[in-house]
Write a protein that binds this DNA or RNA. Structure first.
Lengths: 201, 201
DNA sequence: GTCTATACGCCGATAGAC
DNA sequence: GTCTATCGGCGTATAGAC
């Protein structure tokens, strides 16, 4: 038995990483198994030793991307100023604009997930919820006085919708006006967040 | 010459109608020319007498859908109460949720358009802008006192982002919580619109 | 487990009869 | 202009050697 269990698990991870990046930046249909396996430094024949099919991989990749989104990591030490509201929004918009490193299912796979089986949509929703919860937590911290979990969550959800919608739409715009659109949106979103905090603070 | 110019134009329109519906509800890749032509009551062989290829059709369909969106029609008489803010939002959310009749490129083709050539993205943006302009116009009418075009347009753009984002995201959610999500969003959006009008009225 | 080779189906596009 | 028939390419999935 020249191949260890650990080795198999590692290759499976390599496939997941490659798949998550490719799926998130191009969507389900525009990515081929050959491309994924190639990015994972293998040939397509090896794929079926790890997953039962493309759809199965898609589902796993969505969950993988969710749990590896940058906001999912608990960077305890950088919690103070790095997650300062404006910084988070800016970072999110910049991060999502470029598909590098950690891919974002939220914007790049809206529409895509809508046509898939329940499992995939559940994973998408979980990803969305995790970001909302994350933001709600930050909002509560920054609110000086009592801000109910309800209010924080509502503002967080509204904000995430705006973030996701903004990036998704911007990507569908013609080049010349993309940045202006993103800038305007950023100003609006930050403004809403600030006034929201003041009113509940 | 058994076929008149008019007849050709009519068939072309039939293809466009069918294509717009199918593309908007399923996206570029999940629709085949055979399906489109079948919906237009023809076989796929006849297609190339009207369009040079699938991509060309996609571009035309996007423009067609834009100019036929329900908000693009100037229903002068129903301008008063039918376009009342809340009614418009409700109608939009309900309308976009179901792909029937007039399809919506805005939600269903975000992501899709992002991967296409400049022409398509320009058409997408034109569609977006037309809705923003439409809404901005209504907002200005409802604002009792001076509300600058700037303010109205900013609020309109923010609103459309929320609408599009909401519908697109909801469609990617698992069934059970879709409606709750839509309801919450609707309340938020209407609320923002009302307070926006008050402050500038 | 990973490779190469190949089977099979689907789809966009073309050819040619009517 | 619309049909039927077919070509050619690509992508998923499988077979079998190593």
């Amino acid at each position: 038995m020249p191949y260890t269990q650990q080795h198999k698990e590692q290759t499976r991870q390599r496939i997941l990483v490659a798949a998550a990046k490719l799926f998130c930046s191009r969507g389900f249909d525009r990515v081929t198994l050959t491309q994924i396996m190639s990015k994972a430094n293998m040939t397509h024949g090896a794929f079926y030793a790890h997953f039962s099919g493309k759809s199965s991989l898609y589902e796993a990749a969505m969950q993988f991307a969710t749990s590896h989104a940058f906001w999912a990591r608990n960077d305890k030490q950088s919690e103070d100023k790095e997650t300062h509201i404006k910084a988070l929004v800016t970072r999110y918009l910049n991060w999502s604009k470029s598909d590098e490193e950690h891919p974002s299912p939220l914007e790049f796979l809206v529409t895509d997930a809508a046509h898939k089986e329940e499992k995939v949509r559940q994973a998408y929703q979980a990803c969305f919820d995790s970001l909302v919860d994350r933001l709600a937590l930050i909002l509560q911290k920054h609110a000086l006085k009592k801000s109910s979990g309800q209010e924080a969550k509502a503002l967080a959800e509204e904000t995430v919708v705006s973030l996701v919608g903004t990036v998704a739409i911007a990507r569908s715009f013609a080049q010349p006006l993309q940045n202006d659109f993103l800038k305007r949106a950023k100003v609006r979103i930050v403004s809403r967040l600030n006034s929201g905090l003041k009113s509940t603070a």
